[in-house]
Computed example of a mutant assay.
Amino acid sequence: MPSPLRMLRRRILTPNVAETQLARRGFHVKTPDARELLETVGSRFLEGYAYAMEAGTPAEAETRLETVPARFRGFAYEGAGMGFAMLDGLPLPGRGRVGEFLAGRGARHNYMVYVGIGWAMARLPRFRWPDITGLDPLLRWLVLDGYGFHQAYFRTEQYVHGRHRERSFPWPADDSPGYVSRAIDQGVGRALWFVGGTDPDVVATLIEKFPERRHSDLYGGAGLAAAYAGGVDEAELRAFQDRAGIHRAIVAQGAAFACEARIRAGLLGPHTELAAQVLCGTDAAAAAKVTQDLRPTGRSTGPVPSYETWRQAIADTFTAARS
């Protein structure tokens, strides 16, 4: 049972679930089922966040996170990642919650936890941002993905309809600073799957209103969301693939990341399997293996980070497989 102080902390710091309702956000509603799916994703995210807020230790939160239905458990872990990053960033007793979380069951959900850390960065003042230098140098770009998702989801007018792009963003100086805005765009693209209500035509139209140089990263993020969150049938996935055109390989890369994240966490479901078959041309296990086999072992400090080299190698593999 959480202490009264931690329960109060939860009430004060947890966003209202109404903030995840599509009508409140002004997002497109494709069908009642799609709306229910996306709103459930939001509520489960906040559930995980609340578990972190109430927990005395990350292990306490993990016990409750494991009760969330498999389809939505990754989102709950993402929310908990945000929660622990928020607690680490606030002037509260104790630090290192994120590291402890990632050393436990959170390790299997590291993709989602890293994204959750980015949500916290969007809510905290910069001098309170969590220290990301100890995170995996390859995967920590996902933190910026999470930041971009948050901004597009909650500041939609500015980041989606106004197509705002970060011009100056603090990031480790030796870690390809010129790539920062691209990593954020990948999160914006992932959020567009929600803004567009999982409607492939609406999502593609939103992407195409951005400058062309941003399309690849936006499509990659949307492809990840299509495979991880779902909300579409086979015909809709094929329609989205067709609309992606020259960017269909990076859509496949995003879907492969989703396959790896779900399989690593033991959360593979039919919707991700279907997305792998349509977008990657293979089953989810094979798509995930591509990401594992091509994972870089070294670290690049040039203008193009190893993370982007990895993404492109994955995309090229699916292009070659289809030719």
Results as ranks from 00 to 15, higher is better:
81 G>D: 03
44 R>G: 00
41 V>I: 15
127 F>V: 15
89 G>F: 08
30 K>A: 09
36 E>I: 09
49 Y>M: 14
39 E>F: 01
62 E>C: 09
59 A>F: 11
30 K>G: 01
76 A>V: 03
133 T>M: 06
106 G>A: 12
20 T>K: 05
126 R>P: 00
109 H>G: 02
20 T>G: 02
21 Q>N: 09
55 A>K: 12
42 G>R: 10
104 G>P: 00
49 Y>T: 02
121 M>T: 08
31 T>K: 01
75 F>Q: 10
119 W>L: 05
87 L>K: 13
124 L>I: 14
94 G>E: 07
35 R>D: 02
63 T>I: 15
118 G>D: 03
65 L>H: 04
120 A>E: 05
25 R>F: 02
40 T>W: 01
131 D>M: 08
63 T>Y: 06
20 T>A: 13
44 R>M: 13
40 T>S: 14
71 R>E: 14
32 P>C: 01
118 G>E: 06
45 F>T: 04
33 D>E: 15
22 L>C: 01
89 G>R: 04
102 L>W: 09
87 L>S: 06
62 E>T: 10
36 E>S: 11
48 G>R: 06
122 A>G: 10
83 G>Y: 01
68 V>W: 05
97 R>I: 09
58 P>K: 10
126 R>F: 07
65 L>W: 04
72 F>T: 07
97 R>G: 02
45 F>Y: 15
129 W>I: 09
107 A>K: 15
95 R>E: 06
93 P>N: 10
50 A>Q: 13
34 A>I: 05
86 M>H: 06
47 E>A: 12
80 A>C: 08
60 E>C: 06
56 G>P: 00
73 R>K: 14
116 G>D: 00
76 A>F: 04
56 G>W: 07
127 F>G: 04
117 I>W: 00
100 E>F: 02
100 E>H: 08
110 N>M: 08
53 M>C: 07
99 G>C: 07
30 K>V: 02
88 D>M: 11
49 Y>V: 01
90 L>H: 06
55 A>G: 03
19 E>M: 14
45 F>M: 05
92 L>T: 06
96 G>A: 11
137 P>T: 13
87 L>C: 02
71 R>G: 03
82 M>L: 07
29 V>F: 00
100 E>T: 10
32 P>A: 03
43 S>L: 03
50 A>Y: 07
109 H>F: 15
40 T>H: 05
134 G>H: 13
98 V>L: 15
29 V>P: 00
66 E>C: 07
110 N>W: 07
123 R>L: 13
100 E>Y: 05
135 L>M: 12
125 P>E: 13
37 L>M: 10
30 K>S: 05
70 A>R: 14
83 G>A: 08
27 F>S: 05
91 P>D: 13
26 G>P: 00
132 I>Q: 03
84 F>S: 07
82 M>V: 01
25 R>K: 15
52 A>W: 03
136 D>W: 07
86 M>R: 12
